[in-house]
Amino acid sequence: MAGASGGALAAEVTAAGAFGFLAAGYLDPASLRKELALARGILVLAASDRLPVGVGYLAWKLEKSTDAEAEEMLAAALDNHVQAIWLAFGVHIDKWIRYIRTYDEKHRRRDPTLIFVQVPSVEDAVVAVKNWKVDVLVAQGNESGGHGYRAAPPLLTLVSSILQVLPEDAPPLLAAGGMTNGRHVASLLILGADGVVLGTRFLATTASLYTEAQKRALIAAKSGSTVRTMAFDRVRGTVEWPAGVDGRALYNSTVKDVEEGVDIHIAEEKFKKGVQDGDPDRMLVWAGTGVDLISGISTAKDVVNELHDVTLERLEMASKLYTGN
């Protein structure tokens, strides 16, 4: 959700009864603190209050920085006493987990920061649970919008496989990838997930940092409109992602040009102009496979309420199938 989920969206999701994350992404510490201050203001909390939102970090960005720079980025969230930190896409995620826990111990936090770690495979899930002792495990399927591991299985397969090997005392398992409505949520809960993560659905909200042109592109998207690609990272110069990672976005002429070998400098210039003009045939719109089910722009509160209501409705229907009522 880098470039899309800021302090306003995270706060509005939390205020509506879900749990909001904002993306540290490519922000600097000062910008991250500004977004956290915005969230705190919307939730009407004092500076000393725990902030009930999470911050998501690209672990490879931390690893590319000096230790001092990385620690400053993490401190921006920890000093604000956020409730959770999400780590993904890194080689040394355990290093940042140790830093977060040491920070909490040093500051004698009675309510330590919850650590979410995103995984694309059973093997990574086992390491995160047994070695790193994470607080929350997030299984990201291949359907997910934005960046992910191209070899990740479909979400239903991944969640089922992870559940099969987790010990009884395992942390909560959340499912992420391609979900946009309450029917999706209910299906994953019935499968055995403890919760779900939705990203694309919240891109088309009033508090999302996506431009109006990007939001219109989401609404206009059809089934099959998304593709896994590194084209947008190439034209943006953000190719430092770990091996095996690419991103799922709406297919357009930028992807076509890169795939067909158009000179990268020409593709870059067309992309930049497309962003300036709000041209959906050139700009970047990350999106998961369920994007075709988004029909309009709503408030985050309305989205959370709709997800809640439809999820309960479908779970009640499923219970009737079991009881025979």
Rank of each mutant, 00 (worst) to 15 (best):
M1V: 09
G3R: 05
S5E: 04
S5M: 10
S5I: 01
G6P: 03
L9R: 02
T14W: 05
A16R: 07
A16Y: 12
G17M: 11
A18G: 09
F19V: 09
F21A: 08
L22Q: 08
A23M: 07
A23W: 07
A23P: 14
D28E: 14
G41Y: 06
I42C: 05
I42Q: 06
A47M: 09
R50D: 10
L51K: 06
L51E: 04
V53L: 01
V55W: 12
Y57L: 11
K64G: 10
T66G: 09
D67L: 14
M73T: 06
L74V: 13
A75M: 05
A75S: 15
A84W: 09
A88T: 14
K95W: 07
W96K: 06
R98W: 07
R98N: 13
T102I: 05
K106I: 02
R110S: 15
R110M: 08
P112S: 01
T113S: 07
I115Y: 01
E123T: 10
D124I: 00
A125P: 05
N131T: 14
W132R: 06
V134G: 05
V138Y: 04
S144P: 04
S144E: 11
G146I: 14
G148K: 13
R150Y: 11
S160R: 15
S161Q: 15
E168S: 13
D169W: 03
A170Q: 08
P172C: 02
L173V: 07
L174F: 15
L174K: 09
L174D: 05
A176W: 08
V185Q: 03
S187E: 04
L188E: 07
L188D: 02
I190Y: 03
A193R: 05
G195F: 10
V196C: 12
L203H: 04
A204C: 12
A213T: 13
Q214P: 00
I219F: 06
K222I: 06
D233L: 10
V235T: 01
R236Y: 13
V239T: 15
P242V: 01
G244K: 12
V245Y: 11
V245D: 12
R248H: 08
A249L: 12
A249H: 11
S253K: 11
V255K: 00
V258S: 00
V262K: 13
D263N: 09
A267G: 01
E269H: 00
F271G: 02
G274W: 04
G278W: 08
D281I: 01
M283G: 04
A287P: 00
G288T: 06
G290I: 11
L293E: 12
L293Y: 03
I294M: 10
I294F: 05
S295H: 14
I297Y: 06
S298T: 13
T299R: 07
T299A: 06
V303N: 05
V304G: 05
H308Y: 14
D309Q: 14
E313G: 07
E313C: 12
L315N: 02
S319H: 01
T323E: 12
N325H: 11
